[in-house]
Design a protein around this nucleic acid. Sequence first.
DNA 1: TTCAACATGTAATTCAAACTTACATAATGG
DNA 2: CCATTATGTAAGTTTGAATTACATGTTGAA
Lengths: 292, 292
Amino acid sequence: MLNWSQLPSLSALRAFCAFVQRGSVADAGAALNVSHAAISQQLRALETHLGTPLFDRSNRALELTPEGQDLARALEDGFGRIAAGVEALSHTEAHRPLNIGCTPTFASAWLMPRLAGFQADHPGIDMVMSPSPSLVDPAPGGIDVAIRYGTGDWKGLDSVELMASPVVVVGAPALFKGDTPKTPADLIRYPWLEELGTHESSSWLAGQGLQNERVLSRTEVPGNLMIDGARNGQGIAVTTRIAVAEDIEAGRLVAVFEERRDAGYHLVTKPGVHRPPLKAFLRWILREVRKT
Amino acid sequence: MLNWSQLPSLSALRAFCAFVQRGSVADAGAALNVSHAAISQQLRALETHLGTPLFDRSNRALELTPEGQDLARALEDGFGRIAAGVEALSHTEAHRPLNIGCTPTFASAWLMPRLAGFQADHPGIDMVMSPSPSLVDPAPGGIDVAIRYGTGDWKGLDSVELMASPVVVVGAPALFKGDTPKTPADLIRYPWLEELGTHESSSWLAGQGLQNERVLSRTEVPGNLMIDGARNGQGIAVTTRIAVAEDIEAGRLVAVFEERRDAGYHLVTKPGVHRPPLKAFLRWILREVRKT
DNA sequence: TTCAACATGTAATTCAAACTTACATAATGG
DNA sequence: CCATTATGTAAGTTTGAATTACATGTTGAA
């Protein structure tokens, strides 16, 4: 086990190593971004600490004593190993792709159409989209950031609101045949679509006091297909405003109920440091949201 | 060539390495003689600098991420190499014998009789005596300390006076046969002894204004034999008071002239740091002198 | 479940190592 | 011999790192 307590000051060792590599006190200072005097003092402190002359100061230019040469070799090895380790880390980190977790709905409706812009701005950053209805924790080495729908209170995780978005209940105009439902209870008569692995429709109905009612039929479909199904008149869907904004605008879907809640999409990250690609992404997406 | 400028703070790296070895923040603090809070802050600073999470903080005890493990390996290697180099240095240094240069006369008359005391006090320190009339520079790796006769003004070297000691001119009572010389000029009639490699007798005579006189005979002998020769009545010798103090006391030699000059024996060292054995010796010899 | 013990995090202040500036000393080379 | 180059020293300042004190959160036993 390393005995730290009797190791000389690391800055002194660093100064010595820089001096050895650069060959002069002034150059060593330049390499470390400090003055020559700083190096001079560190070198003297090192000699004092070790109780050994490391230099022959008889000439103008310092020369290493045999002891100094031994130490130099050890330090160049040691610091070299350390620097290599640090650099390797930065490299692998910089190149590990950015891993984004979000719901299939949000991905196809909002994120994917804009992502090209981000990739154009940051050609060095590879990305992996992990669309998944289940809300995976952003873990180190796994998901870097998750985009989640909720109220922003994920315990143990940091979140910032991306955009508020009410829950809407939508259906195709063809489904209603002009007879648009007036109350939530009217919806019982229709077939429902639900995203695989979620229970949004039931919880919405429960929120309306209809938790015991059975709807006409309930079809579970993969997330990306739910909106498609709704558009085709296959049933009622519960989703967020953002995901169907364009469809409503274009008249392909009708929002029959809309519930103003203080919920919305959030950027959720692990507390702690963000690696540079992640920082870039967060900056970009927040700017992107502000545009609209 | 190492690029120092983008290396993280070395104390942060050290803290990280200590944490890895000890397994907890608090223990790492203990190993480095700092508080747990200091370590905590260093670790966070390191993560921030690298832009990479090094720990999984979801549990109470920190766990290394894969990146953290890579870095840990590099740091343990690197710091290990450094520590080994430093330790090797201290070891070889501590064991290199102490090299003392002094005149043969002083060695046999004053130093050798007392040296046993030093060695008894410092059993770990080996010594090499280098008696030599020529005044060798104490150089790194060579002589650690020289004991020289003079006035203390050796340019480029540090010196402290060990003891003042006038120059004396001595001869055996048998040589003078009761007819002790009264003036320096009287000494011309006697045979002279001179230490090999020195010119003390001629310069003493020159100091008395007798630079052009020829003495009866001049015999050059190795330093350690000069006093012996004088004792045996083989001639006049010029030396220092200290070297013949006991002989004069015991009546084996007579001091015919004594010149009070501000000269004496000095401890002469290279400026700069003194390694521990040298410091011990200097402390010892100065205390030894003060005893008398 | 609740509480004590443990492990780490954070904020504010204090402290000291390390740096800068300015001047000094000394060697080298034209 | 002087200009130039290289290092040393001293004094004062800066800032990185430490301490202290309190907070947060987990674990395990009562």
